[in-house]
Design a protein around this nucleic acid. Structure first.
Lengths: 207, 207
DNA sequence: ACCATTTTTAATCAATTGATTAAACTTTTT
DNA sequence: AAAAAGTTTAATCAATTGATTAAAAATGGT
């Protein structure tokens, strides 16, 4: 067992995660990963049997990371209004730290939906969550606009994640640097939060 | 000059467009394109000097297609409210007909922003349009919420295009087929239009 | 019909790809 | 310390990649 700080297996995983996130499955060579991990290229096949297997592992890992945080918030025993606010904040923080997580997942899923079918199973848990029940109740009480949880979730996710999917485009089109983009995104999220909450919790129909 | 219906050059362009859109630059081989076009694989290099050059041409073509429609609407001499409504409708129609246009452009831009810098120059025209002036005026008059045109544009684009970027995910997570997705998307756009207009043209501040 | 130009083809190139091998090196077990 | 098991290495494999070649076929002008 290699105990010098990190195991070889861990080094490969970390390197693979970084390279796959940046270059995608097709754009990544096994030698890229080996080089990034600082290991012999045959070691990748020793620990993970193939590039495909390693990718499946990393992809699954990143999907879990993405959805688990969402699920945690969505299942908290707090009010709907607070939950939506927290959901937006949490997701924004996650994307600020992992700006190309969404474009990676969406692109790989687009390239090969069948291959990744099993991995995305966890996404099905969101429509089944407490969130869904809370919304049904709120609608029944006339507390919010009549909208299914899928639509609400899509609004939240779209407004946050598209910011990062289109990050290179936004930076080019508006001539922003990293700091400029961060400022733009931070401001934008405030508007989005206000817009979504205004729409859902309409003043005239509030309890 | 080949006059049997379509020229060889056109056949290559059409095939390349379809294959690149589906598989991306890295996932596409020149033999894929040749096969899809029904031509000898050396012909691709005869008409376009390399895979890279052909890709640049197609990418530029698709970017123009994407932005030109937006720019046309944005520069029409109509009211802001009507313009936003038209912008959403037009963009939705375009995405329904080209569902993977956005994920393709965003992913290639993410993979290689420098290479495609020149191509995306046209995106800069949007912040310079009549739309921008109209918004400044409306804000000055207190007709709409105080928001820069960049934020408004981002809201519109994000809510529509992310629907299609995440299409495979949505279909998997909610167990939808093509028809189911179309129904979901069509409904969603109505909500989005209402939400954005409500937010911009707030009742209490309307002229 | 002849020639020059353009277009298309099959064959092939060197480079890169994911993967395997057998030998060398470490670590653990006895 | 010797044997066994686990880990790492360099060398190499066949397949695929983007691209080029030289010859063949088609086209157009005279």
């Amino acid at each position: 067992m290699n105990c010098l700080l990190v195991s070889t297996e861990e080094k490969i995983k970390e390197a693979a995660k970084a390279v796959f996130l940046e270059k995608g499955f097709d754009g990544t060579t096994t030698r890229d990963i080996a080089k990034a991990a600082g290991i012999n290229s045959a070691l990748m096949n020793y620990y993970f049997r193939s590039k495909e297997k390693l990718f499946q592992f990393i992809f699954n890992d990143l999907c879990s990371f993405m959805f688990q945080g969402m699920l945690d918030v969505v299942n908290q025993p707090i009010s709907l209004r607070e939950k939506i606010s927290k959901l937006i904040d949490h997701q924004f923080q996650m994307m600020m730290q992992n700006p190309n997580l969404t474009i990676f997942i969406m692109n790989e899923l687009h390239r090969n939906p069948e291959r990744l079918y099993a991995t995305v199973g966890m996404a099905k848990k969101i429509p089944e969550s407490i969130f869904h029940q809370q919304i049904d109740e709120a609608i029944a009480q006339g507390a919010i606009t009549h909208l299914s949880s899928q639509h609400i979730m899509t609004m939240i996710v779209a407004n946050i994640q598209f910011l990062f999917v289109s990050k290179p485009m936004t930076m080019l089109a508006n001539g922003l640097d990293e700091a400029g983009f961060k400022a733009f995104a931070t401001q934008h999220i405030e508007y989005v939060k206000e817009m979504i909450c205004d729409y859902l919790f309409k003043p005239e129909t509030a309890t």
